[in-house]
Amino acid sequence: MKHILMTFLSLWVMLPATMLGQDGVKLEISDGIEVGSVKSSIERNASLLMTAINQAERKCSDVNFQGIDIGNQALQSIGMMWENVHFHIVDSDIVEHCFRVKDSKGATVGYQVRHIAIQMKPLNDSYQGDLTQKICINFNRDGRISGFYIAMDEGLYNRLTQEGKRFDDLDRRMFLLNWVELYRSAYDTKDISFIEKVFTGNDHALIDSIGSNLYFSYLKRVFEKSDYINVKISDVSIVRHGVKPNYYGVALKHEWFTKYCSNGGILFMVWDFTDDNAPCVVASTIQPIRTDEKDLFNLNNIRLR
């Protein structure tokens, strides 16, 4: 009798825990896109992907992308992140806004679902960042997953959205925010080629090119030797040139650390939006974090053509 009672009590306690631990994740879009095939595709693909992630995390295996309409870039991004750290989607039932990604003419070129909460599941003690993060999933116009990365916080997103509406250049500021998120993600995935382009791929003369190249060389060695790179991005600012409005200065502070070393700096880049379909970096530099504000590079230091 005692044995039956104990078994019953155990089941009564454990059943909710089991239900909570189910892998299935369902995404529903509340607004931001009309009801139709694209909305259905977004919901289906995102749900399948997040379910696959949770299954892989529970089984400690690779993510199975079978049956998910996902582009190569997003697939590789998740794969590279998965090699360094696992995570699982916190909520099984997600309702979120859908944001339209627009080009300079206001045409919709894709969609985005942001602020999906994940819990990091480090593979070892090399991960030292926040265990709670938010991800952003990008979709193309047909609802195919085209991007997946850890999102910047809502405060920054909101500030840039307000600035974009105020200055009538929301599309450009969202592009730059997306780039900052990809830059941050490059540390999560140890995508050294992405970071290499930031520091060595400019056509114009680099400011402080020696410093930038040295920094990149050092970072490359750290990527090779470390399990996971913890990174924190803060103080992001985007400023449009007052006289040449196709040029934007992007500044951010980034600090990264591993079990054995740490570094960081203040990255400043100049973006050229003359061709809105192909914005490019025309100058970049990195300065030590403790640089005085008066000595920081800004748009006034750059001679633009």
């Binding site: 500030r159 200055f167 600012s237 400023v239 449009r240 040139h241 007052g242 006289v243 200065g249 504000e293 008066k294 800004n298 748009l299 006034n300």
Partner: peptide
């Protein structure tokens, strides 16, 4: 937040 930065840059926003 970045307004202070801008005031030292008259050519900016």
């Amino acid at each position: 937040a970045m307004g202070d930065k801008q005031q030292s840059a008259p050519a900016a926003e």
